[in-house]
């Protein structure tokens, strides 16, 4: 399944980069994340609970960040397991300054699913991913607003 989208955040690439690289922030803004444990720099063990429509389940697995270019982008590697099936994804995220102190985030990637997620979920998964992405950026925006205040 292809993943693609963009979002413009009201902060600079510099601040956004700092936030994204901070596990505490990530734990806070990523939808469904219950626990994010650093195993090594840029490599985390993640526990999450996803509830979007009929897709519900507890996911567990690795989340790592590679190909980092400061303030410009990185690749997110997701390897999550659940009783509904597993998800393996690589998402390339690029940042670019936009307008007055804003950042345009573009992300593109491919997710491979297995089990029930694949057999039942393919049709609805892109909707689920889009919903989760929106939630992520909205929470990020709230966090940015909180920091500004």
């Amino acid at each position: 399944m292809k993943i693609k989208g963009n979002y413009t955040l009201s902060t600079t690439p510099e601040i956004f980069w700092q936030m994204v690289m901070d596990p505490d922030v990530l734990e806070k803004v990523t939808p469904g994340i219950k626990e994010l444990k650093a195993l090594s720099p840029d490599n985390y063990e993640a526990l999450s609970e996803v509830k979007v429509g009929p897709v519900r389940g507890n996911f567990k697995g690795n989340l790592s960040i590679k190909d980092k270019v400061e303030q410009e982008g990185c690749t997110l590697v997701i390897d999550q397991k659940s009783k509904m099936g597993n998800v393996i994804a690589e998402i390339v995220m690029t940042l670019a300054p936009e307008g007055e102190g804003q950042t345009k985030v573009e992300y593109t990637g491919e997710a491979k699913m297995s089990g029930t997620l694949a057999s039942m979920g393919q049709r609805i998964m892109s909707g689920v991913v889009s919903t989760l992405s929106k939630q992520f950026f909205k929470s990020m925006e709230a966090e940015i607003a909180a920091r500004k205040a």
């Binding site: 491979k112 699913m113 297995s114 089990g115 029930t116 694949a118 057999s119 039942m120 393919q122 049709r123």
Partner: peptide, 14 residues
């Protein structure tokens, strides 16, 4: 079945 052997027609939706 997709190339990896996942069934993508596993319900009456598909």
């Amino acid at each position: 079945y997709d190339e990896g052997g996942q069934m993508i027609t596993g319900s009456y939706m598909d």
